[in-house]
Simulated assay, not measured.
Amino acid sequence: MSDDVATIQNKLVDFYLAELDALRLSQSLQKGQLEALSAPFFLNLHAAKAYFEAPIRVMFVGQETKGWFCRLPEILNDPKNHVPPLLARYERSLLGPPGHSHFLKTRCLLEKELTGGIPGSVIWNNLFKMDVFRGKGKSRSARNYSVALTTFSAKLFRYERELLQPDIIIFGCSATHDTVVKSLFEAPKRKTVLVHVPKELWHFKYDQIDCFRTLHPAVARFRKHQSVQKHYQKIIQEIKSGKHANAVRIVGAMASRPDD
C-alpha cells in the first residue's frame, strides 16, 4: 500500500502545484486580498496511510484552518520549496496530540469509534483551503471572502474526493456553509436521506458516499456542548448500524484483540 500512497500523494502534489501556479497567473485576487490569506491547507497522505488500509474510509471536514503556517504570497513566490513544510505541518496536526482543539479532539473520537483508534485513519480536510486574517481578535472565516478562494478550494476538494474515494464524509460546519457544501455535491447525484435536526444535522448521499453535515465541534464553547455531542454520537450510531456496520465491527474486533 505504501507505493500506492506515494503515487497518489505525487498526483496530489502535482495538482496542488498546478493550481497554485494557475492562481498566481490568474490575478483573480488583488494584492490586499492575497496578503490576508494564509498558506493553503494541503493533505499529506503518508501521514494518513492508515486511512487507505481501513475497511471504512472516513473523511472529517472542517471549515477552514486558523492561522495556517504563513501568508499566501510567500507560498506563491516559491511553491515547490514551501509544499514540503506544509505537508509536515499537516502531519504534525493529524498525528500529534489534539491539544485544545475541539475539532481535532472530535476527529480522534471518530477514529476511536469507527476505525479502531489507529492514528491517521480518519483523514482531515477543510472546506476552504485558506483562512483570512482580519486582525487580532477577529473572525478568520473564509466564507464569502472571494469568488477566487471559493473556486480554488472547491476545485481542490473535488479532486481530493475523487482521489481518496471516501465511504463517509462528515462535515463539521454550520448551516451557513450549506451553499458551499451543496456546490461540491451537485444534484441529482446528491440526495437527502434525512434532516434529523433542521440546520444542525443533515444526512445526504452522493453516489455511494454517505455524508453528514452537523455543527462544528467548537460551538461547544457557546452553550451547545450537549447538542454537539449528541449529533456526533448520532452520526456514529448511524454509521455503526448502517451498510458499513460489518466493516466497523471488524475494525472494533481488531482493535480489541490482544497483541501477539
Score class of each variant (00 low, 15 high):
59 M>W: 06
126 N>S: 15
75 I>V: 15
227 S>K: 12
139 S>V: 04
68 W>T: 00
21 D>I: 07
198 P>T: 09
231 H>Q: 13
17 L>V: 01
243 K>W: 03
196 H>E: 14
129 K>L: 04
43 L>G: 02
54 A>W: 02
41 F>H: 09
130 M>V: 14
242 G>Q: 06
67 G>Q: 07
189 K>S: 07
227 S>I: 11
113 E>P: 00
34 L>D: 01
114 L>K: 03
107 R>S: 14
99 G>W: 11
77 N>L: 10
248 V>A: 10
162 E>A: 07
196 H>D: 14
200 E>Y: 04
239 I>V: 15
92 R>M: 14
107 R>M: 15
4 D>P: 02
223 R>P: 02
164 L>S: 01
235 I>K: 11
237 Q>F: 01
201 L>Q: 08
11 K>Q: 14
6 A>E: 13
39 A>W: 00
43 L>S: 07
178 D>G: 06
158 R>Y: 00
149 L>E: 03
181 V>K: 09
31 K>I: 07
69 F>V: 15
168 I>G: 01
131 D>P: 08
15 F>I: 00
5 V>P: 11
164 L>D: 04
230 K>D: 15
62 G>C: 10
143 R>K: 13
166 P>C: 07
147 V>F: 09
34 L>C: 06
40 P>N: 12
112 K>V: 01
138 K>E: 12
250 I>R: 14
112 K>Q: 10
199 K>M: 12
141 S>W: 02
20 L>P: 00
236 I>M: 05
220 A>E: 11
37 L>G: 04
51 Y>S: 10
4 D>V: 13
251 V>D: 02
2 S>Q: 15
11 K>D: 11
127 L>V: 13
38 S>T: 15
81 N>H: 13
210 D>R: 00
181 V>H: 05
230 K>T: 15
122 V>Y: 03
24 R>Y: 07
248 V>R: 01
50 A>S: 09
42 F>D: 01
219 V>Y: 13
100 H>V: 13
78 D>G: 01
185 F>W: 13
55 P>C: 11
93 S>P: 00
86 L>K: 05
197 V>I: 12
33 Q>P: 11
71 R>S: 01
84 P>S: 09
37 L>Q: 12
144 N>M: 04
152 F>S: 05
132 V>T: 02
51 Y>R: 05
212 F>I: 00
56 I>Q: 10
47 A>D: 00
53 E>L: 13
216 H>D: 07
72 L>H: 03
9 Q>W: 06
61 V>K: 05
246 N>G: 12
18 A>W: 03
